[in-house]
Amino acid sequence: MGNIERFDKNERLSRIVVHNGTAYLSGLTADDKKTGTSDQTKEILEKADRLLASVGSDRSKLLVAHIWLRDVEDFDAMNKAWVTWLDGVEPPARATVGASFALPEIRVEIQLTAAI
Rank of each mutant, 00 (worst) to 15 (best):
A115L: 12
P104I: 09
A95S: 12
A102H: 12
K9L: 11
A102D: 09
T37W: 00
I16C: 03
L13G: 07
D31F: 03
H19R: 13
L51M: 13
G27L: 02
S14A: 15
V72I: 08
I44P: 04
K42P: 08
E11H: 15
L112A: 04
T96L: 10
L69A: 11
H66V: 14
A115G: 10
V89C: 15
S60E: 11
D87F: 07
M1N: 12
V72Y: 12
A30M: 04
D58Q: 05
T113D: 13
K33H: 09
T22W: 04
R94M: 10
L86H: 11
P91T: 09
T84N: 11
G21E: 09
G98L: 03
G56K: 00
A102P: 13
I16T: 07
D58T: 01
V17I: 12
V108D: 04
V17C: 05
T96V: 14
K42E: 07
Y24L: 13
L52G: 00
S38Y: 10
I67V: 14
K42Y: 02
K34Q: 14
A102T: 12
E105M: 06
K80A: 08
D87A: 06
K33R: 14
Q40V: 01
E43F: 02
R107P: 02
L25V: 07
D71W: 00
G56M: 00
R107Y: 07
S57V: 02
E5C: 09
H19I: 06
W85G: 02
L86V: 01
L63K: 10
K61P: 01
W85V: 03
R59G: 06
V55F: 04
E109M: 03
N3E: 15
G21V: 07
T37S: 04
L52I: 02
A114L: 15
S100M: 08
